[in-house]
Amino acid sequence: MLLAIDAGNTNVVFALVDAGAIRARWRIATDPRRTADEYAVWLSQLLALEGFRIGDVTSVIIGTVVPRALHNLQVLSDKYFKTEAVIAGQGRAPWGFQLDVEEPQNLGADRALNAIAAHANHPGDLIVIDFGTAATFDMVDYTGAYKGGIIAPGINLSLDALVTAAAKLPRIAIEAPKGNISVIGRNTVDQMHIGIYWGYIAMIEGLVARMKSEVGRPLKVIATGGLAVLFEKHTDVFDAIEPDLTIQGLWMLWERSR
């Protein structure tokens, strides 16, 4: 089976993929100092809990936006899985689609992988929104070419900045509103929930509307990332939500690299 590793700025996601089907997934906080041995101890226990063994992993592919984390993940693959990891976007696993932007070398691996999977799953022109540490809005045309996009602060990042900079504001959990929906808060916590949640909805809807207007053709909106489901009940901007889009992209790129 394939071990697909998506190393993001906040978490590293490990997914066990068998013929395109995700059999298990785990995540751990991103720490470039974490050694291959530490990963192996953690992973071996989680594999066992799901009924798998280290020997069940025969191939590894890594996509990362944290360059410092790559070396230890490669050592993990070499030492414990006895296979040389395929690195997304490098060597025998180039992206395989046109990067029609000014600085193609700076496109994050997660955004490229999302583009691969979204284009494979959906025909036509697309907007792919990934709710991660940053919120990214990417335009992929009907040929699969990446045409550019938008980077905005992620909702957790925005909340952290607000709480850090304002001494009297409490730390709150991000959650969808329940019961009667009002955008006029009667206390500090409610006002923060409204500002963060509905402010983010307004940003999503506004940016998607501007992208659609600029492109001038129908665009299907695909959302991914752990927080995508947080917004779907209160906006109709998404045509599809695919939480595992990045892992799907890793599997498709690995299949192509073979």
Rank of each mutant, 00 (worst) to 15 (best):
A4Y: 00
A4D: 06
D6I: 01
A7H: 06
N11F: 12
L16N: 03
L16E: 05
A19H: 12
R23L: 13
R23G: 04
R25N: 12
I28T: 14
P32W: 04
A36N: 02
D37F: 14
Y39S: 02
Q45K: 15
L46M: 14
D56F: 05
T58G: 14
L76Y: 05
K79G: 05
K82C: 13
T83F: 10
E84A: 14
V86P: 06
V86R: 13
I87L: 15
G91N: 11
G91Q: 10
A93H: 06
F97T: 08
Q98H: 14
D100P: 10
D100L: 12
D100A: 15
E102C: 11
P104M: 10
N106P: 10
G108C: 11
D110S: 08
A112L: 14
A117S: 12
A118H: 08
H119M: 07
A120L: 10
H122Q: 14
G124H: 10
V128W: 01
I129F: 01
D130K: 12
G132N: 04
A135T: 15
T136S: 07
T136G: 02
T136D: 00
F137D: 00
M139P: 04
Y142K: 15
T143C: 07
T143P: 05
T143H: 10
T143Y: 03
Y146M: 02
G149Q: 03
I151M: 07
G154P: 05
N156Y: 12
L157H: 05
V163N: 00
V163H: 01
A167N: 10
I172C: 01
E175V: 13
A176H: 03
P177M: 07
I181S: 07
S182L: 12
I184W: 10
G185Q: 05
N187V: 03
V189Y: 07
V189Q: 13
D190A: 15
M192D: 00
I194G: 02
G199Y: 01
A202Q: 11
I204M: 05
M211V: 14
S213E: 15
S213G: 14
G216T: 06
V221T: 09
F231G: 02
K233V: 04
H234Q: 11
D236C: 10
D236F: 03
D244K: 13
T246R: 08
G249K: 07
L253G: 01
W254T: 09
E255G: 05
R256F: 01
R256V: 02
R256I: 03
